[in-house]
């Protein structure tokens, strides 16, 4: 008895592919979801974490797929994601998505990955990584950030200043004061703003004298009126709290 097969299965088959030419997992995913507009994020959300990590490392995976995997990994919050996500910090289209994951991951390996990237990257991608270091308030990154304060790219130096302000420790404050002394015009306002944030952190930690020293350094740099007003108020308040 002749077997009836669907037309698709009776059509001529292409020659068997050599193993090296087989579609990668990412290409298979891309074929299943051939166009970004047709790629449905819900399908990605249903995948197991282990599958997500395999797909993320697959060179054939689409930008959309990788982006959404990073978002999903941020929700899952597993440290196993770090080695798979970290290389994407170098990708202009995916760097933010990689930072989605790393910025919220509760593990020191995420800090290490961001610090590592901060030593290698430059330009806007580096600024983004420094921003994430600031969000995580990684105190171990202070020496690295202090170096980046002198980066020739002003946007990078500004990001380093903001991160130091956010970290808000005494070493961070010292780095900001040293940078203030160098009087680099392009980063002055970023330094002033970072000093205000850093000072708040120090005051909260009971380091009023250190905060006051930072405020005095900003005042000495003759900031623009918005900052000058805040600084004048802060100095008066800090002195009232026995900061001197």
């Amino acid at each position: 008895m002749q077997e009836t097969r669907p037309a698709a299965q009776t059509a001529p088959q292409p020659a068997a592919q050599a193993p090296a030419q087989r579609p990668t997992l990412g290409q298979q995913a891309a074929q299943a979801m051939p166009h970004p507009a047709q790629e449905k994020w819900r399908e990605i959300w249903r995948l197991q974490p282990s599958t997500l990590l395999v797909l993320l490392k697959d060179p054939g995976a689409s930008v959309f797929l990788k982006a959404k995997i990073c978002q999903r990994l941020a929700e899952i919050g597993s440290r196993e994601a770090v080695p798979a996500v970290a290389p994407l910090l170098e990708d202009p289209q995916l760097s933010t998505y990689a930072r989605f994951t790393l910025e919220v991951l509760p593990d020191s390996s995420a800090d290490a990955a961001l610090r590592d990237a901060a030593r290698k990257l430059q330009g806007p991608l580096l600024a983004g990584v420094l921003n994430s270091i600031g969000v995580r308030r990684d105190a171990a990154a202070v020496p690295l950030l202090a170096q980046r304060l002198e980066d020739s790219d002003a946007a990078v130096a500004q990001a380093a200043a903001a991160a130091l302000g956010s970290i808000g420790t005494e070493p961070a404050a010292r780095s900001l004061m040293e940078a203030l002394r160098r009087r680099r015009a392009e980063i002055r306002s970023a330094l002033h703003d970072a000093a205000l944030v850093c000072g708040e952190r120090l005051e909260k930690a009971g380091r009023t004298a250190q905060a006051l020293a930072l405020y005095e350094a900003v005042r000495g740099d003759e900031p623009a009126p918005p900052v000058a007003n805040v600084i004048a108020r802060r100095i008066a308040d800090s002195r009232g709290k026995g900061g001197l």
Partner: peptide, 15 residues
């Protein structure tokens, strides 16, 4: 997990 969803990274260079 909920706490991780309180924030999200901004595209560089924004912060």
């Amino acid at each position: 997990q909920a706490n991780r969803m309180r924030s999200r990274a901004m595209r560089e260079p924004w912060r």
